[in-house]
Design a protein around this nucleic acid. Structure first.
Lengths: 206, 206
DNA sequence: CGTGCCGTTGAGCGCTCTCAACGCACGTGG
DNA sequence: CCACGTGCGTTGAGAGCGCTCAACGGCACG
């Protein structure tokens, strides 16, 4: 578990606080690696679209325990559900480019996008509540593959090759495990020849 | 963990399958205790509003493992996010009365309702991923109190008295624990004088 | 060359699960 | 009336999965 102190994580010097312009045309902003974007800033909500890169939506307990709710790849929308408790912050896992909307835009898509987010969260609850450590890691890899893979064929089989932007610690906080367990499960999968890891960047074999 | 077989749970004889009428005025339907309502039935989605009673939204793994995503009290809306995987079924924990809408109604509220559901799910992810067994049970009791308590004052303190509709097994599947652990945690809280249980129905003391 | 971050690996412990038995309330039928 | 079955909750004993603590190597950076 990441033991960043809560305050440190929130109020860190490397925090991007951005002015809010409701109804304005989409503004693009950049997020550095390990930079934190606080959602639901002051007046009203705005929505964000991850144009490029990888972002983690994370929650913190007062004692520093972290839970990553979701890992977002290019095209994903975020910034919903910022009222009250259950606040998430967006943490850049790479250098990211992000577009900010007012609530008014995207009305049509928003609902299905939101429903999709809820769907993902429910699946994740199933993972967190009822799956074993290796099942969680396997599910995570499949999810990452769907979001980040560029399909390649090498020989007879189709490999899904994709970079793993979250660190072991990020994966652990996403999957409700510790980084050691994640590491062990990955190498267990490697031993079973289900994945290959040349670097901490992956090739999964069906 | 509840070891109802997947098929048994889904295709049980006590399953309420209802015809769908999009755009129609709200229809009310009844759900008996332990009866299952399959959401996302055939063509298009409809939304449901729990008028009275208590309902659990549950997911099943092929081997029968169950995860309860949420426990719903009167007034709550459900039936979002029924596409693809992550399907939930609604299981009545009491005798319930439910209203069914077409998607068209409730447009304005729906978005905030949906965002609220997402918010709850994110909080629940934090619970499932990063809280200890007793913290989970405590959080669950607080949640149930907020949904089901009728406030009463006895003496100087304000007790929140509320009935616990979910069984120990339901609570376990909600909190990612086993029913034995739930039972032990409850009695641990009782020993600490933080709650009272006259029957498996509660009084929480702040 | 020192420092810090990331990832790996090992040893040991502990929280939670598993398995089991029991009590209790309820309904059913002899 | 009692015997029986079932569902729910409780409690205990033991085991195991995953956590904790620790050490180590590789790499980037100043």
């Amino acid at each position: 578990m990441l033991h960043l102190a809560y305050d440190a994580a929130i109020a860190a010097s490397q925090t991007a606080l951005v002015a809010h312009k409701p109804g304005a045309p989409p503004t693009t902003l950049r997020l550095m690696n390990r930079e934190t974007l606080i959602l639901g800033t002051q007046e009203g909500e705005s929505l964000y679209r991850l144009a490029d890169g990888c972002v983690a939506l994370a929650q913190y307990l007062p004692d520093g325990r972290r839970q990553v709710c979701d890992i977002l790849g290019p095209g994903r929308i975020f910034g919903f559900a910022v009222q009250g408790s259950g606040q998430c912050v967006a943490e850049g896992l790479t250098y990211c480019t992000i577009e900010r909307f007012g609530q008014s835009n995207l009305r049509a898509n928003m609902l299905t996008e939101l429903a999709g987010m809820l769907n993902r969260q429910q699946n994740h609850a199933l993972l967190l509540g009822r799956k074993t450590a290796s099942e969680r890691v396997a599910s995570a890899l499949i999810d990452l593959a769907q979001q980040f893979s560029r399909k390649r064929r090498s020989g007879t089989r189709t490999h899904a090759v994709f970079p793993v932007f979250p660190t072991r610690a990020d994966l652990a906080d996403w999957l409700g495990l510790t980084l050691e367990t994640v590491s062990r499960c990955l190498h267990s999968l490697k031993r079973q020849r289900l994945i290959r890891l040349t670097r901490p960047e992956l090739i999964s074999i069906v």
